[in-house]
Amino acid sequence: MSDNSSMNRSRDRPEVRTMGDSEPKRYGRGLFLATVVGGLTSLAWGKPVWSHVSAALSPAEGLVPFVPHDGWRIYTVSGSMPTFDAATWRLQVGGLVENGGLDLSYAELRALPRAHQVTDFHCVTGWTVPKVRWSGVRIADLFAQARPLPEAHALQFVSAEEPYVDYLTMKQALLHDVMLAYEMDGKPLAREHGAPVRLVIPEMYGYKNVKWLRAINLVPETQSGYWEYLGYDRDAWVGRSNGYHS
C-alpha cells in the first residue's frame, strides 16, 4: 500500500466490488456472456435499431470526415477499377436490334433525352443510401434510337470490369425509374460509382445496378449474371429476394 493508491483507484470501480466475506459474484463472466449473447442476438435486431439511431444522428454526420457517412461502400470484383477517357469511350448497343445497333460516344450518350430521379439505393449486404439524385437516360429513349427486334425479351448489361455482367427482362428494364445514369448527386458519375455510366434499378439490389457499362445487348432471355452464378437471385427485388422477406 502506498500514497499512490488513489491514482489507480480512479480506474477501479469500487461500486462493483462485493462487500462482505462471501464469495464475490462472477460479474466478469456475466459481462462476457452478456456481450456475446447481445452481439449474437443483434443479428436479429441490429439493422432496424441502427437505422433509427443513424436517422437520429444524421444532423451530426458531417462531423466525422472519414467514416462512410453517406452510406456508400465500394465493391469491385476485379483487381482494379476501369478507367474512363471521354475521347475514346464507347457504349455499344447490339444484339437483337434493328439496323445493327448503336455505337455511342460519351457526347452522343449525353445528347439523348435526359431524365432525373431521386431514389434509394439498397445493397444486398444490408446497407442503404437514401435519396440519391440520379440523371441519365431512360431505356425507352435508348430504344427510340435502337429498336429491339420482336424476339428480344431481355437485356444484357456488360461492364468494363470483367467479367461482370447482368441481365434484366424487357419488362424490368422499362420500369419507370430504371435509367442509365451518368450523373449522381449533381456531379458526373465518379470512377468508383461506375464512370461514366451505370445502370440504376432502385427496386432491385445493388448488384443488378451494373457499373462501368460498356455494352448493352438485346437477347432472347435472361441468364445468370456474375453474382447469380454464386447463388444470388436473378429477380433481385428489394425486400423480396435473396432470403429477405418484407
Binding site: R11, R13, R17, P24, K25, Y27, L31, F32, L40
Partner: peptide
C-alpha cells in the same frame, strides 16, 4: 477475470480483457 474485483488486474483491465475476448468471438461469427 470472472470476478470483477481488483486482483492481479484492476477492474478496468478485466473489463477490457473480457470485452476483447467477446469481441473476437463476435468478429469471427
Amino acid at each position: 477475470l470472472e470476478r470483477l474485483t481488483p486482483s492481479r488486474f484492476n477492474v478496468g483491465q478485466k473489463v477490457n480483457a473480457l470485452l476483447t475476448a467477446a469481441f473476437a468471438l463476435l468478429f469471427l461469427a
